[in-house]
Design a binder for these strands. Structure first.
Lengths: 194, 194
DNA sequence: CGAAAATTTGACATGACTCAACTGGAGTGG
DNA sequence: CCACTCCAGTTGAGTCATGTCAAATTTTCG
């Protein structure tokens, strides 16, 4: 099971880990199983753990005074989940993170993570590559939200990340796109009609 | 002048550079002066240089078929400018980058940048810290675009980055916020009336 | 099957956009 | 130093995309 993390790191760092290094990595992480709807993080708490998703589906979202939820991240297996701002700055988070499907995670604390960065160069490289990709994908998403209509953003998502649409309910996808569930429903109908 | 870059790196890396290291850094960068409206990057080109702004104001934007401009980044002194996706992936950029004010830059190529990352640990650390901050600020901006109205986004910008509002014309700020210049004008009037 | 949740649909409200006209400087040149 | 132009910003009117609320329908799942 932890082989998944090993090959993930090796892929992103474009190198291999020695068994000793991998041992260190595995000691730094704790396995955790979350059932559907269980929380990894609740608003107001500091994000103590960053998680690597082995299997499952999770979401990160805020809730406003009216109770409306705003989804800012959806995560599937072989990706990371956590509120980075809170995790690294040790500040209270404005986000909630919960499991949408039953999810298996590998969790790591800030301290342990820093230690890995200090001792294993491959982890540093991996982080650089991941940040790079995140930087690029967020910039694209930001550009979409400024330059594209609701329909265009939905169609872009269908083309680039169909797996999200398959795994999460429509209302979450709507929130992720920054539109109402009703609007998304209408957009989909019109897309089909054409 | 290049002392600015040195102290920037030292601040972000929380360490000092040896003179030898700084020598390497300076050899990697080229000084460039851009006049107002000159381009650093044009759509369709690969972003050959990443720039550190010593003095001035720059913007990064795309243009759609109708000629409408969408500003995705505004940069002032002591920050970086460039299309990271194009720069690191060597792909043609969809963005234009030009100088809004006369601007002094230090430019670096991808090759030279990789070399610095390989030879100077402080540069690696600096990048990690910068990426971290960018990650956080972009996530916030994304959250704003999903969860807040045009007015709220404008007010947030006034509170968090008033220097952008002072240095760039209103229509660029509007584009940066993803709203029309007319809408921004009306929002401002109403804010004043209250 | 039956309850609860998700999605769809309809009717209506509204925020934001578009287009066009107007206003008010900031420069320029006679 | 005035007249003129240019351009950003403002304002108005009409439109359109999207949101809201409520009801109907479909799907999910115990």
């Amino acid at each position: 099971m932890s082989e998944v993390l090993r090959s993930y790191i090796e892929t992103y760092a474009s190198t291999t880990l020695t068994d000793a290094e991998f041992e260190l990595v595995m000691n730094a992480f704790t396995f955790k199983r979350l059932r559907r709807k269980q929380y990894l993080l609740q608003e107001g708490d500091v994000c103590k753990y960053y998680g690597f998703i082995l299997k499952g589906a999770m979401r990160q979202y805020s809730v406003d005074l009216k109770g409306t939820e705003y989804v800012i991240h959806l995560g599937l297996e072989e990706s990371w989940i956590g509120d980075r701002e809170s995790f690294f700055m040790l500040t209270p988070s404005q986000y909630n993170i919960d499991a949408w499907e039953d999810t298996d995670l590998l969790l790591i604390t800030n301290e342990d993570f820093q230690r890995l960065l200090d001792t294993i160069p491959a982890v540093v490289t991996m982080m650089r590559v991941i940040d790079q990709r995140y930087y690029i994908s967020t910039q694209r998403r930001l550009h979409s939200s400024i330059a594209y209509t609701a329909r265009e953003r939905y169609e872009e998502l269908v083309n680039t990340q169909p797996e999200l649409i398959q795994r999460f309910p429509q209302q979450m996808i709507a929130s992720y796109l920054g539109i109402s569930p009703e609007t998304l429903s209408r957009i989909r109908r019109q897309s089909i009609e054409k």
